[in-house]
Structure formats: structure tokens, C-alpha cells
Design a binder for these strands. Structure first.
Lengths: 198, 198
DNA sequence: CGCCGAGTTGAACTGAATCAAGAAACGTGG
DNA sequence: CCACGTTTCTTGATTCAGTTCAACTCGGCG
């Protein structure tokens, strides 16, 4: 089974020779999350960053009509957190839920902040995470504004080829901002197009 | 005329008693940008954060069909920067252009970074900017995924009532991800709806 | 006065949504 | 290991929101 590990992830990204930090990391709670269980619900204040060691999470909203909208998938090696809720201490509009049985390390958001204050290298790492996040969000907005359903799907395959195999098509559709039926048709069209080329 | 000022903006957000920082801020280049002139073009690497003292900027992309997509409007008191390009040192996919004659303070992105390293309070401020940015982007994605053109327009009015009066409708449409004609119809519908209620 | 760009309106069109029904795949318990 | 129920995916028919293209209006300005 695929698995990642926060400690190795951090040591390869942060200069970890300070004893204090090493301790902080090692004392973090690692929890098992069964498929379908929640790490965050709408209305909660998000108090943790979640690092996925094994499994897969989804980060999503539900609108007034009951429709689900995926903001992010988080497979092993990824962080998920509602930064708006965590940073501004507001009730979240979102849910975080396990799509597969998962192992998740919980990092107190305050600890993240105080580590940033006391360790330069960690601050730089945190900064990089934030910039990465912004990069993803901005590119996605640009895509939503400019691309058709088919183009967005092709982009999804390009960026997350691995997720395609693990995530039900319904949820990919929800990520792309289209209905499952539409995605099915997009895929059909692509298949026949591909055929015609040969 | 509306105007903002980086120094007052910073002193009210950052603990500025360190002489070094004060100097840094005061030595920044303040430039005049005529309407239609560019601060960043597609292909450039973004080397500055732009703080708008007076006027209005637009931050946008142009797709293969030549269509323009607005990522952000920046009136006085706002920052604009392509963080993806600046942080990862990549050529930008975007343009930054003056919508009105503007006065802009240019902040070297490297200076921003090194100030963050040497002053805790500035680091916290910078962190807040990043989180604010993420909040905006995430909310916008959620809206693009879940809301109709009309709902997105109403949200725009709610959040940027002032911009509505300064920005040509075509560009608001581009921000919302619809055509100018569609926005015109959305507005017409809203007008008659409002009428009917009375 | 006449031009020009921005906004509006109309008519036809289209990409995607909706609703409904059937087929395939999946997991769970017997 | 099969059988059954459940979820996921596909397909078809119809509807609808938003696009496209074209013509027209309006207000500002040289």
C-alpha cells in the first residue's frame, strides 16, 4: 500500500537539526480514519493541518441544493486544512472526509505558527506551502474561467493521473464543476476522437 | 481622489519600530502608471509586489482564443503580484495593467522575503497577506463551482460595491466568467425582479 | 455635429444540466 | 464462492443557461 511519512517529508524539506522541532513532530497524534468518517464538518473551526500518511481524503462544500463541490483531493504526502477557518478562527464552510481508510497526522495549527516563529527554516517551509497552495488555487480559477469541461478534464488527467484510478468518476466530475453524466460523455467523446486519429 | 498609502497601511498592520524596516519602506520606488500601461506581461518573471496608492489595476490572463479573464482587480490599498511567478521564479502567464491612471509602490519580492526573515512582526503580516489571498481564491473557486451567473454577480456586488461603479461592465463579466451580453441580461432580469417585488 | 466605444436587445445555437432508465462493478453476508 | 443489494457509470431525450453573432441605442467627446 502507498504510504508517506510526515517526518521524512519534513526532514527532506526543512533543516531539522533543532532538537525542539524534532520532538514536536514526533509527539504528533497519528490517527486512523475509516472511509466515510470526518475530520472537519461545516460549522466547526478548523484546528489542525492534516497530513495524509496513507489513504485519501476529500475536502469539499455542500451547496443549498445539496450538491457537493470538491475543492481538493488529498492522497498520501499531501496536507489539507481550511486555512480560512484556521487562520481567521471562523466556522468552516467545508468538510474533510476520508475517501479510503486513512492514516492521518494531525498538526495543531497554533503549533505550526509557533514553529514558524522559532525556526527560520520551518518558516521558509511553511511559506513555500502557502505559495504552493496559492499557485494551485490560482491556476484552477484560471482554468474554470477559460476552459471547457473537456479541457478541464484533460488538465486533471495530466496533473493527477494517479487520482483518476482511485477516485470515483462522480467526484472527479464534482471537482471539475460538471455533472457525472457530462463527464461520462466527455470521456466517450475523447475515446472516439482518439480512435479516429489512428 | 481616492488614495491609499503603503507606509500608513504598514504601520497600522505591522509593528514598525525597527529603523531598518522604516528605511526599506521609505526608499521604495513609487511610480506613475498611465491607463493601459503594463506592470507585468505574460512571459515576464514577476519581480515585484505592487501596492496601489491611487487608481486601479487589473490582473488577468488571455487564453488561446484571445479572450481575457480577470483574476483580480486592485484598487487603492490593495496588493497585486503573481506569486507563482515571483516565488517559483517562473515566467508569468498573466498581465498586470492599469485600468485608470495610477500611482503604484513597487516592492522587490526578495526584499519582502528578507524583511520577513529579519522581523517577526513583518513575517506575521506577510503571513496574513498570504492567508487572505488563499481565502479569496478558495471562496471564488467554491462560487465558480456552485453558483449561477446571477448568484456570482450578486456576490460580486456584495463584496466589491465600489468597483461596480469604476469598472466597465465588460470586465466585470470577464471576472465572473461570463460574456458581457450575459451580464447585461442578468442585470435586466434582476431589475425586473426587483420591480415585481414592490 | 458625427463618430466611437460601451451597453443592450434579439434570434439562433450549443454545451452542459436534468430526468429517467438500464448496465456494469463492487462489497458484504450467507 | 455465489447471490444480492447498492453504488457507479452509461445512454437517451429533453430542457435550459449562457454563447454567439448581428443590429441597434445611447452618452461622451473631439
Amino acid at each position: 500500500m502507498n504510504s508517506s511519512n510526515l517526518k521524512t517529508f519534513l526532514t527532506s524539506n526543512v533543516d531539522m537539526d533543532e532538537q525542539i522541532i524534532r520532538e514536536h513532530i514526533e509527539n504528533l497524534k497519528k490517527i486512523q480514519v475509516k472511509k466515510g468518517n470526518f475530520l472537519l464538518r461545516q460549522g466547526d473551526v478548523c484546528k489542525h493541518s492534516f497530513f495524509v500518511e496513507e489513504g485519501l481524503l476529500k475536502y469539499y462544500s455542500i451547496d443549498e441544493k445539496g450538491k457537493q463541490h470538491i475543492l481538493q483531493f488529498a492522497p498520501e504526502g499531501w496536507f489539507v486544512v481550511d486555512r480560512e477557518s484556521a487562520f481567521f478562527n471562523q466556522p468552516s464552510q467545508y468538510f474533510i472526509e476520508a475517501l479510503e481508510d486513512s492514516v492521518v497526522t494531525m498538526i495543531d495549527v497554533d503549533m505550526f505558527a509557533s514553529l514558524s516563529l522559532h525556526n527560520q527554516s520551518f518558516a521558509l517551509f511553511n511559506n513555500k506551502l502557502l505559495h504552493n497552495h496559492i499557485r494551485h488555487l490560482q491556476n484552477r480559477i484560471n482554468l474554470l474561467l477559460s476552459a471547457t469541461a473537456e479541457e478541464r478534464y484533460l488538465d486533471f488527467i495530466r496533473i493527477y493521473p494517479d487520482l483518476l484510478l482511485r477516485v470515483p468518476q462522480t467526484l472527479v466530475a464534482s471537482y471539475l464543476g460538471i455533472t457525472p453524466e457530462s463527464l461520462s460523455r466527455v470521456r466517450k467523446d475523447l475515446a472516439t476522437k482518439k480512435h479516429q486519429k489512428q
